[in-house]
Design a protein around this nucleic acid. Structure first.
Lengths: 340, 340
DNA sequence: CTAAAAAGATGTAACGTTTAATCATATGGA
DNA sequence: TCCATATGATTAAACGTTACATCTTTTTAG
């Protein structure tokens, strides 16, 4: 259709040089009000849009960032809507800064070559840790990065993460306050220094504070998916210790868990209290609605974009590490240990 | 860091011309096995990655597609995980074809100028209709498009959509089969020719077939969100006709509805049966699990990518219109009208 | 043994920008 | 009046590719 109109065409029609057109577009150089108007009019008429490729070829930045989402399973991105909220936040943040977002799901074999190929301005990386294969590859790219939910020890890295320890503490404390003692944990991979690790640390702190001994039998490492939660219900049901509270480190697994308990005849919260984590969009509509640790996922994504762009533009005034607060939302899935 | 190595550097080190390097990379022209090896070795060593901007500047395609999602409807961000599943499918399809995906959330003011600016190869557009402001703008771009869930009348357009009419029919028929007569509908905007319109037509067909008169009072047009569903429960609860079945045209609204009914003391399925639509990932884990119309969302996304790429490469052999089948999944949220 | 054809390699223009260097004209001060 | 300085506008190089046309060398056919 409207076959590619270039700066050259504009120049010819407006009867000026291409340099002038370029100056008008970018507000650079000195150009009189008259010619500025003239050129702008032609641009309007021809619906001219500068070629991003030519630009990025020239000045090496592409106004493109990628949001890197890990854990591709069987080639498909995880179905946890948590990522959706995060990605929406990133998209939304980027939109306000005239940058576009490439969505990149990675597995362990990703080589990231296209990051350099496309001259990506930066990366927003979700949930890697020091041991993960992606981590070193990403660093070696030498591209500005912001890590989300990643807990990397290098203080030079820009990071946005959650106060997971506090979250773990809050949820556990809540259960303890209700009288529960045998509190199980449903966690994704508990790698040293990962998200779940800190939530677990918070859990331990709460236990210690109340003098409850730590019991490794109560820690169930699962796929942090809805199925993982469901399957865990079986294991918990047949558990020797009389578990009365469960802290699931993600809302999706909590949902699976509750359903699983329902299926083996355990009632929530009458028999077992359940706390989730994330405050995904549907938690308050579950039956029972889910007591959970709230984080503002969307604005976390937005914060990451801002940080990344500050870094890219060298205007980074904010700290390199932002920790987003959490809060406890009490709903119906938790109840006192001994119901009257 | 590794500051941009170009085809020129490779050429110099390998002691050949840049044209030869280019030929090696693209497998074009004639180049001996020896030099091919030599060049490849240097490429390996220097970790050379061709510049996407230079390429796309040259041959006008970018290997970039955008998936256009209506994030913002009436000012509210869509948190429907349905979109996430779709986007996941698209990402996955693209991955298999060495194309990257830009995520573009739009509101009614989007001007799409960057689509031309970036030389995007094509667009996958979700849920527009002929009256929507985005529709004309997108068409005028003259860029290859595939429309998802869009029902556009122009037969020249490439479209992937669902057999919504059948879905509407199946769900309704199921309720009728269980003995229900007063069946309400929870639908998003019922614009002529949209997704909901066809689902509604299917609903009507099922009614006609069973001689049940159509009752406009039973059709509730809502925000098809979880909140929308929740609020609808109030309206249904106080409804004068004795409603015993509800067909919600999306799973998220069904979830909200069920919760809303729960809150006003109506039990599902004992008092009211509920059918959803989409078979979102969590439906089988709800309490009660949700009877719904299943569609394979992820593979719908994949199909769209294939279709788009076929169109771009001119290898489009498949039909311009793909209709994905639906099926009824019966779970616990529906029950016979008169329970014995 | 020679002419023709094939194989291998190269030079270079072009894609659409930005930017530094240059040029031309008008304006101002002494 | 003349030089210095702003102000406007232009020229041309460069960014990293690809592809066409050209050139050289080798192989093949007769």
């Amino acid at each position: 259709m409207s076959n590619k109109v270039s700066i050259k065409d504009i120049a010819k029609i407006a009867n000026v040089s291409i340099a002038t057109v370029s100056n008008v577009i970018n507000g650079t150089g000195r150009v009189s009000a008259d010619t500025k108007n003239k050129v702008n009019k032609v641009i309007q008429e021809l619906q001219f849009v500068p070629s991003a490729s030519a630009r990025s070829l020239k000045d090496k930045n592409s106004h493109l960032i990628a949001v890197v989402v890990p854990f591709v399973e069987k080639g498909i991105l995880q179905d946890n809507p948590f990522y959706w909220e995060l990605v929406r936040g990133v998209e939304n943040g980027a939109r306000n800064h005239e940058v576009q977002v490439i969505l990149l799901g990675i597995d362990e074999h990703e080589d990231f070559s296209f990051v350099r190929g496309r001259h990506l301005d930066g990366l927003i990386v979700v949930g890697v840790y020091e041991q993960s294969p992606a981590y070193r590859k990403i660093l070696s790219l030498g591209v500005p990065c912001v890590f989300l939910d990643s807990y990397l020890s290098d203080p030079a890295l820009y990071q946005v993460d959650l106060d997971d320890e506090a979250g773990g503490y809050l949820g556990t404390k809540h259960l303890i306050g209700l009288g529960h003692r045998a509190i199980a944990v449903l966690t994704g991979r508990l790698e040293q220094g990962g998200v779940n690790y800190f939530r677990y640390q918070g859990y331990l702190r709460a236990l210690r504070e109340s003098g409850i001994p730590e019991n490794p039998d109560l820690v169930l490492e699962i796929d942090s998916s809805i199925q993982g939660g469901y399957q865990a219900a079986q294991r918990l049901g047949h558990h020797k210790d009389g578990i009365t509270g469960v802290f699931a480190f993600s809302d999706v697994s909590a949902m699976g868990l509750i359903r699983g308990m329902h299926d083996i005849g355990m009632r929530v919260p009458e028999d077992v209290s359940v706390v989730g984590f994330d405050d995904i969009f549907y938690t308050q509509y579950m039956i029972p609605s889910l007591t959970t640790i709230r984080q503002d996922i969307v604005s976390k994504g937005q914060a990451a974009v801002t940080m990344l762009l500050d870094q890219i533009n060298g205007t980074a005034t904010t700290s390199r590490r932002v920790t987003v607060p959490v809060s406890l939302i009490v709903r119906q899935s938790t109840n006192s240990f001994r119901k009257i």
